[in-house]
Simulated assay, not measured.
Amino acid sequence: MKYILAACFIFLINLSAFATDTKIIVRAKAKDAKFIGSSLGGAEVIIRNKMTNAILAQGKTEGSTGSTDLIMKTPYTRGMRITDDKTAKFLATIDINEPVFITIEVYSTIADENARVSASTDMWLIPGKDVLGEGVVLEIPGFLVDIQSPDSTKNMSLKSIKAEPLKLKAKVVMMCGCPINEGGMWNSEQIEVKAIVKLKNEIMSEVPLDFVTTNIFEGDLKLEKTGDYEVIIYAYDSVTGNTGVDMAHYIITK
């Protein structure tokens, strides 16, 4: 028995001796925009063993959104890097002794659960073969949409609304936090922002929201009945296919 235990002990020592720290960089890039970093609280990264589902590493991307000129304006050629040492990333060091098939999951953004979008990919990680430089880049599509007014926690009277329509105000931002402006790099003119107004699950109207200032869209909401209204505001870019949604409820009394 003691020989069996000794053999097992030697086997475990040999196994750990072959284990190697292997580094991998993971980045989250907003579709048609820049990288998701510290300014939005980072993107959450989880690296799992695909076979066992065990978590091998977990953290969040930290750093800047990157260079606008390099990412958005410079023609891309094969092998060209669009990141530098300051560009947001999550660096994991994983101790493995044989090739491991991993799943990389990215969740963004941490700061806004309602707008959180996920992306994932699978790959083999080889002991001692670091994945650095650009690393693994996962694309996060969409917009961050936030209804800023009216205040959904307050009941409003139909009489006051008929006298002065409600001003719907929504903030629409790229997933990396990059600004949307008229004629800008992220052009408000190609983004449709509209409110779908529902009462008792029936669509009552659709209200377009116009660009007002950086990231802000507004429109007038006219109501003719009392009740519990659901307002769904969406943003849609027909060029890139980016979409985003936020919802609010408004109780209108007599």
Rank of each mutant, 00 (worst) to 15 (best):
L158P: 14
A235L: 09
T74D: 11
N53A: 08
A195Y: 03
Q190D: 13
K34E: 00
V106F: 04
M174S: 00
T87N: 03
S238F: 06
R48I: 07
D210E: 11
C8E: 12
T83F: 03
L132M: 13
I13D: 06
I24Y: 02
P99Y: 12
E164N: 15
M123L: 12
I161Y: 12
I46G: 01
M247E: 07
I96F: 11
S152E: 12
S238K: 10
S67P: 03
V193N: 01
V100P: 00
N14V: 12
K225Y: 15
G37I: 03
T68Q: 05
G183R: 04
T213W: 06
P179A: 13
V106S: 05
E139T: 07
N201Q: 10
K29E: 02
A28S: 11
E98L: 11
T87I: 06
P127A: 05
I4Y: 13
T83I: 08
D228A: 08
K129N: 14
I251L: 12
L166K: 12
V245Y: 09
F143M: 00
G41Q: 03
A33M: 00
D69Q: 11
R116N: 09
I46E: 07
M156C: 07
K31E: 07
D210I: 05
A235E: 04
K169L: 07
S120R: 09
D237Q: 10
F217E: 08
D122I: 08
F90D: 06
I47T: 02
I140W: 00
K171M: 10
E105N: 13
I71F: 04
Q58G: 06
T109K: 02
M204E: 15
I4V: 13
T74V: 14
T93L: 10
M156N: 09
K60T: 13
E230M: 10
A195T: 06
G142I: 00
S38A: 13
S238V: 05
A170W: 02
A43M: 03
W124I: 15
A170V: 11
T20G: 06
D228L: 14
F35N: 00
R48E: 13
W186R: 00
V245S: 13
L168C: 08
L138H: 02
T65E: 08
P179R: 07
E202Q: 15
V26H: 01
G184I: 02
A119F: 08
V145L: 02
E202L: 14
P99G: 09
L168A: 05
E134H: 07
V245M: 15
A19E: 11
K34C: 00
F101R: 07
E98A: 14
K31W: 02
A33W: 00
G227H: 07
F35C: 01
K29R: 15
N14F: 15
T93G: 11
V172Y: 01
M174D: 00
E230T: 12
K162W: 12
N97I: 03
I252M: 14
V193Y: 01
T77D: 05
P179G: 07
N242C: 10
I102N: 01
S16W: 10
Q148L: 14
I82Y: 05
M175Y: 00
N201M: 11
T121C: 12
S118Q: 15
A235T: 13
G227Y: 09
T214P: 02
I252V: 15
I147P: 04
N49D: 14
T93D: 14
N201A: 09
I110F: 06
